[in-house]
């Protein structure tokens, strides 16, 4: 009698453990179904043409921001820098991409300096306004230019603070709200790296 009871408990615990192994629960917001991430035909801070499709096999972490945003954007980029550090060797399979929401002021020179302060492998993209605007639209990024008449800045850009994850097959998989703990992002990226999608 007791034996049967014990066996059923063991079976239950085993089932639970197995189900836990199988399904990793992402901490970011999962995009279902995963769709191909829209292409970003832009130019990086070194003057090289950028194509998302060149990064198949890597996880791409995407952030939209601008260099004259010394407050929030550096926080997000600082978080991404720490994500890369914590990933260790896995960081070689991850590319961080920063897309400008302020093409006028984000000159290649400024982008180089700005991004180098975080991680020299980070890419900063800029390009034609129409291409950028299509990218904002495709990724659902709010970008609003606001004049600051009494400020030395002249204007600022209100913008969304999400970080997006694109998997090794080029599918747009996850988004993290601003302020998501670094460890949560690391954990999600490791899960993507562990289970590459069929390519």
């Amino acid at each position: 009698m007791i034996q049967r009871w014990l066996i059923s408990i063991i079976v239950m615990i085993t089932a639970l453990a197995l189900s836990g192994c199988g399904a990793y629960e992402f901490r970011g917001t999962v995009l279902e179904p995963p769709n191909p991430a829209p292409e970003l035909p832009l130019t990086d801070q070194f003057g090289n043409a950028f194509q998302l499709s060149n990064y198949r096999g890597k996880v791409v972490l995407l952030f939209f921001g601008f260099t004259h945003c010394p407050d929030i954007c550096p926080t997000a980029l600082g978080d991404l820098k720490r994500v890369m550090e914590k990933l260790g060797n896995d960081a070689a399979n991850v590319q961080v991409v920063f897309v400008s929401v302020d093409p006028e002021r984000d000159t290649p020179d400024l982008m180089q300096r700005y991004l180098a302060a975080f991680n020299p492998t980070f890419l900063g993209l800029n390009g034609d306004r129409s291409v950028l605007e299509q990218a904002y639209k495709n990724y659902g990024v709010t970008v609003i230019r606001r004049d600051l008449p009494n400020s030395g800045l002249g204007y600022t850009i209100d913008h969304s603070g999400y970080i997006y994850a694109i998997d090794q097959a080029g599918n747009w998989r996850l988004l993290w709200a601003h302020g998501t703990p670094v460890d949560d992002i690391v954990s999600d990226v490791q899960a993507l790296l562990r289970n590459p999608p069929g390519m």
Binding site: T43, G47, N48, T67, E104, R105, T107, P108
Partner: peptide
């Protein structure tokens, strides 16, 4: 290398 994208500015200096 600025690949033709160095001058987006209209007086708004970086």
């Amino acid at each position: 290398p600025m690949a033709g994208m160095s001058d987006h500015g209209h007086g708004s200096e970086s």
